[in-house]
Simulated scan of single mutants.
Amino acid sequence: MRAVRAAETAATTHPWAIHADGLQVRAGRQLAVNGLDLALTTGVHGLLGPNGAGKTTLMRALATVLTPAGGRLTLLGRPVDGRAELRPVRRALGYLPQHFGFYPRFTVREFVGYMAWLKEMPKATIPAAVQRAVDRVGLTSRADARLKTLSGGMLRRAGIAQAIVNDPQILLLDEPTVGLDPEQRLDFRELLRDLGTDSCVLVSTHLVEDVAAACTDVVVINEGRLVWQGTPEGLTTQGDHSHAGDSPAERGYSAVLRRHRAEAAR
C-alpha cells in the first residue's frame, strides 16, 4: 500500500469557476451569445439584461446543455466543447432552468432524490442530502406531497432543492424567484448568500432589487455581449434620477444599458 500525498486529497481549486473568452452560442440559427468575455469565481453573481439579451442561452451553455459555437469556455478548469468529457463537470453543477420538467406523481422527496441519482451522487449519501436540500428551501412539511399538488411557488422551491442537492461548485439559477411571494423571496436571498460562501452562484433575473440585495457581483449583458460588471454598490452609482427606475439599482441598470446602446449606435 503506497502513501497518499496531501496534494492528492486536497480540494481542487481553479482561478475561475467560470471562464469565457470570446464565447459564441447559438439559439437556433441566431448567435444569441456573441463574443462574450466573462470570469466568475466564488460568490453570488446576478445576471441582468433585457429580453433577448442572451441570458437563458448563456445559462444553458454554462449548464453544458448547449455546445459553444465559438470562443472558449472552461468550467472548474475543464474545457467545454464538443470533444470534452463532461461528466465530471456535470457532477459538480446545479441547474434550475427557467422552465423545468418534472414527474407530477413524484413526491418532492422522490423528485429531489431522483435528481441526486442522475447526478451520480453516492447512494448512501442521497437520503440525508435530499432532506437537507428540502429543509433549506422550506419544504420540510411538504416533502412527501406529490408535485402535482404544489403551488407554483412551491414547485419553484422544489426546483431549487434539486439544483442544490449535490452541494454544487457551480450553481446556475434561471429566474428562480418566479412564483415566490415577498416573504419567500427574502428567505431565498438569505439562502443565496449562504450558498455563495463556497460556491459560484449565477442567478439570472429581471428583478434588479433581488440582485442588489443578495449578490456580491453584477453582470449586465445585452445582445450576447458583456455590457458592465461590478458590485451592486457600483451599479447604483451608474445612474441618477434622470434614468428610469424606482430605486438606485434600477436607475443604475437603466443608465448602463442606455450608454451601451448609445455607443453601439455610433
Rank of each mutant, 00 (worst) to 15 (best):
P104G: 08
P104D: 09
P104F: 12
P104Q: 11
F106W: 10
F106E: 02
F106T: 00
T107I: 04
V108K: 05
V108D: 08
V108A: 14
R109V: 04
R109S: 14
E110M: 06
F111L: 13
F111E: 11
F111N: 14
V112P: 01
V112A: 13
V112G: 11
G113Y: 01
Y114K: 03
Y114V: 02
Y114E: 04
M115Y: 10
M115V: 11
A116I: 00
A116T: 01
A116D: 10
W117N: 03
W117C: 03
W117P: 00
W117A: 15
L118Q: 12
L118W: 07
L118E: 05
L118Y: 03
K119P: 05
K119A: 14
E120A: 14
E120S: 05
E120M: 05
M121Y: 08
M121S: 04
M121G: 07
M121K: 06
P122E: 04
P122L: 07
K123H: 09
K123E: 05
A124E: 11
A124M: 02
A124K: 15
T125W: 00
I126V: 15
I126K: 06
I126H: 04
I126F: 00
I126D: 03
P127H: 07
P127G: 09
P127A: 07
P127Q: 08
P127S: 10
P127T: 08
A128T: 12
A128F: 00
A128V: 10
A128M: 09
A128H: 09
A129F: 01
A129S: 13
V130H: 11
V130G: 12
V130L: 12
Q131A: 15
R132I: 01
A133M: 08
A133V: 05
V134R: 10
V134W: 11
V134Q: 08
V134F: 12
D135Q: 14
R136T: 02
R136S: 13
V137N: 14
V137C: 14
G138Y: 15
T140G: 15
S141Q: 15
S141G: 12
R142K: 13
R142V: 03
R142Y: 12
A143S: 15
A143E: 07
A143F: 12
D144Y: 05
D144I: 00
A145K: 01
A145V: 04
A145F: 07
A145E: 10
A145M: 05
R146L: 03
R146C: 10
L147G: 06
K148L: 07
K148E: 14
K148W: 07
K148I: 02
T149R: 08
T149P: 00
T149K: 06
T149S: 13
L150A: 11
L150C: 09
S151I: 09
S151G: 13
S151C: 11
G152E: 03
G152C: 03
G153K: 02
G153T: 02
G153S: 03
G153A: 04
G153H: 02
M154P: 03
M154L: 11
M154D: 09
